[in-house]
Design a protein around this nucleic acid. Sequence first.
DNA 1: TAATTTTACAGACTGCAGTCTCTTTGTCAA
DNA 2: TTGACAAAGAGACTGCAGTCTGTAAAATTA
Lengths: 197, 197
Amino acid sequence: MNKRTTKALLTKKKISEAALRLFNEKSFSEVTVDEIIKETNTSKGAFYTHFKSKHDIFLEKFKEIDDYYVNELVHLIAKEEKYADRLEIFLRLQMTYIEKDLGWDVIRTIYEVELNIERDSFFLIPDRPLYSILLDIFVNGQKNEEFRNDLSPEKMMDICLRTMRGILYDWALRKANFSLIEEHGDLFRVMIRGLMK
Amino acid sequence: MNKRTTKALLTKKKISEAALRLFNEKSFSEVTVDEIIKETNTSKGAFYTHFKSKHDIFLEKFKEIDDYYVNELVHLIAKEEKYADRLEIFLRLQMTYIEKDLGWDVIRTIYEVELNIERDSFFLIPDRPLYSILLDIFVNGQKNEEFRNDLSPEKMMDICLRTMRGILYDWALRKANFSLIEEHGDLFRVMIRGLMK
DNA sequence: TAATTTTACAGACTGCAGTCTCTTTGTCAA
DNA sequence: TTGACAAAGAGACTGCAGTCTGTAAAATTA
């Protein structure tokens, strides 16, 4: 780690922290890049050497949190015997995390940005830990004779992901005017019932 | 209808038609407002007296199509005896219409724009015919003892809408790299199974 | 029919994300 | 040590959606 890299990393950190703080104080769309660089005494050049876009700075942090948190969840569900229970608890913890820690504006922004054509998608990265956790549940839940086996585990994971995206999209759309924690259960229980033997 | 109004309506139509043609030729995001007004020999002033935004011109047409088509669907499903069958057929026809007639870019654009905070949402308008059709199915399907009755029809409609949004969001996200017509069945059958007695 | 008001429209202007070019300064090979 | 190179950063510039102000002509009122 030489002098130049150290300084560069510091600049990146400075920009990232200021930006995230501002996103939090206002909302993502109300913060401008000019504001961020003014606040940090940097420049457009500095900003765009470190981040591909204004969204990128946001997604980078999100990835970090997402990975960390999802990995934590694995341990919390591992003690459940039934995979259907693991799934239910996992989904509940996810929704709780999203509602309490991430919040509405974060989800709204991510779901909006993911549909931008120019940018590369985060949801489509195949090795998100979220995907392997779900797949594991369905593979083993089928072996355990809990889930139907006329659908492949991959198919079931797709169904589950689409259902999650549906409620999260709706939550973002409605500006969080219902509680994810309270309402996710109805939808997911219907889905799980449809997936069981 | 006086002279001024007639001319204004003509201008609006001219802009709308040119814009929709261009959106179709390229894609929504590749067409600029400047291009539209140049093509139609009009001006920013003209454009923005008739449309609230570039998205608006698009949504206006979409509403029209949506209403027309959804109203048509009512008749096509009315002959089915079982409400669960009505629901399944309705969903299949919807997905077919979306995949064949609307296309991926239209759905992508709408789902993206709906998450914009500044604009008023189309999905949240309570009297979309889509909503009354679904509600009718659940109300009568419950009376008919087909669907479970520990969930209100409104709740069931929410579940159904969220599931639809989930698959459509995913389809838009994946740039239509799977066929809605072929794949919607797995998801919706799981949902319907979860909703049945 | 003259005076006043309204409105469709023209086009200059603003705000913002993102790009491009140029400069400075640290790094590395000889 | 020095000369070539690379990479961090500065800031002017571009492209685009949307706003603002001014104007001509139609509609309305007197």
